[in-house]
Amino acid sequence: MTAAAMDSRPRVPFYRRPVAARILMPIAVIVVWYLVYWTLGSRIFEPPHRVFEFMWNELTLETRLRNGKGPSNLYQMFGLTVVRLFAGFAIAMVVGTVIGLAMGLSKSVNAFFHDWVMAVLAMPALVWALFLGLVFGPQGNQAPIYACILAGIPFVIINVREGVRNTPKELFDMARAFGVPQNKITRNVLLPSLMPFLFAAVRYAFSVGWKGLVIAEVFASDSGMGWAIKFWYDAHQTRGVIGYALFFVAFALALEKLLFEPLAEKAFKWRPRVGDVGVVEEQFLLDQTVEGALEVEQFTGGESDG
């Protein structure tokens, strides 16, 4: 038998394979971009190669921004934003977990906070940004960090509360039937069963908190990535706006691929890898548990975006 005969699958031409489609999308975007550029004939709008050139210059520190304190570059702005993001995220996680636990364990505490948590959840980050900007002024880190906390915390609270509510009753009953002491139950049943919900909380607090943070930097700060994109917008420089927009997208994708996916892999190795159920659950922003949680709330849920 020849090698060709052994390959029983019919040969699929390259352009019909899914891989080709995936490569085609960015090409299509660039083509459409050029088409829009030519048809608009706008003086402001710029074609892809100019934007890529700008991004390259940013990465190699050719261009410098000026923010009153002297020139600054992409890495400084980016570093500031990341520091603020982690600070806001950490506070949102700690405070949100405490409130979420209390709300999950006690119906009274839940009744007390519920409507206000929903109100904060439905609030656009823009409202926080404008308000905090007036209160704290554009200097310093306070306004962006508070905006990050306020955007992220309702997601932490709701996820932790749902985690507590959805603890596996049958496993607690089992432990009780065997007379297992309480601290052992907490360590072996309660905490592991909360993990997927905590993980969803981390993911949401991070991604939503980041979006809130960037908006606050636009309206209430004189530094950071958000401020940089606003700087180019005010300067009517398309290459700056779209270039920074692409940096944002790259950052979001890097966060997902380099932080959350490996983390999920590690934390949930006990989950069987059968079927695609686990995969759907761990996709960015599509977490079933959280969507379920928000559906229960039946308010203007979704992300704290825009």
Binding site: G226, I242, F248, A252, L286
Partner: peptide
Amino acid sequence: LTSPGLVWALT
């Protein structure tokens, strides 16, 4: 799904 609404608004 991952990028902030801000970038699309400005773009």
